[in-house]
Amino acid sequence: MLDDVDRRLVRQLQNDPEATTSALAGRAGVSPQLAARRMDRLRREGILRGQHARIDWTKLGYEVAVSLRFTLDKTDPRALDSFIEAAREVPEVIEIQTFLGRVDVRLSVIARDLADYHRLYRSRILPLPHIADIEALMQVATLKADEKVPL
């Protein structure tokens, strides 16, 4: 899958996502041309799926982060699809994950403060379809948020 050159390039990209291909090449100990070819191949193969901005929501005024875990009423075969479709329409939902097990779906939700969260919960979350149970976990601190792969 990945050889040593690929791993060195990806490791350098993880350390500095804004680095130019030439800079990545220098740090990985390869020529800029080889680095460009390898990076292009990694993108074509879907290993590198783009570069993303990581946003500090608190600096934009969103002080509350809540993880909501849902168990759905599965008597309707479209329950999961309907729930996800509706959840995608809530702008404060910044992540949707599905699971196998007791919990079916987890939503990551942000709000400006507790009053804003309460309004959001009552007006946008509770009306989501097919909810059988909800568990809310309010985030107190983020101790690690690293997306790096150990290469």
Rank of each mutant, 00 (worst) to 15 (best):
D104L: 02
D76W: 06
L114M: 15
S123H: 11
L120V: 04
P91Y: 08
L107T: 08
Y117R: 10
E85G: 12
R119V: 03
R88A: 11
I110D: 01
A86T: 09
R112V: 07
R78H: 11
I94E: 13
D104S: 06
A87M: 13
H118T: 14
I84Y: 02
E89I: 02
A115H: 14
A115M: 11
R102N: 11
Y121T: 00
H118G: 05
R78Q: 11
R124S: 06
Q97D: 13
L120I: 02
Y117P: 04
F83W: 12
R78D: 09
V109A: 06
E92D: 12
R122V: 14
Q97H: 11
V93W: 08
D113Q: 02
R112L: 03
L80K: 12
H118E: 14
V109D: 03
I84L: 10
V90R: 04
R124Q: 13
Y117W: 15
V90A: 01
L114T: 01
P91W: 09
V93F: 09
V103W: 06
I110M: 05
Y117V: 02
V103T: 15
R124L: 02
D76K: 14
R88N: 14
I110P: 01
S108N: 14
E92Y: 04
A86I: 01
S82F: 04
A87N: 10
R88Y: 02
A115P: 00
D81V: 11
S123W: 02
H118L: 13
Y117G: 02
S82I: 00
S108W: 09
P91Q: 14
A111V: 08
I84C: 04
R106K: 14
L80R: 10
D76E: 13
I110Y: 05
I110Q: 08
R122T: 07
R112D: 07
L120F: 05
D113S: 13
S108L: 15
D81N: 12
Q97L: 15
A115E: 14
H118M: 10
R122I: 00
A86F: 06
F99Q: 12
P77H: 07
A87I: 05
Q97P: 01
P91D: 15
V103H: 04
F99L: 09
Y117Q: 07
R106V: 04
I84A: 02
F99M: 08
I84M: 08
I96K: 07
L100V: 10
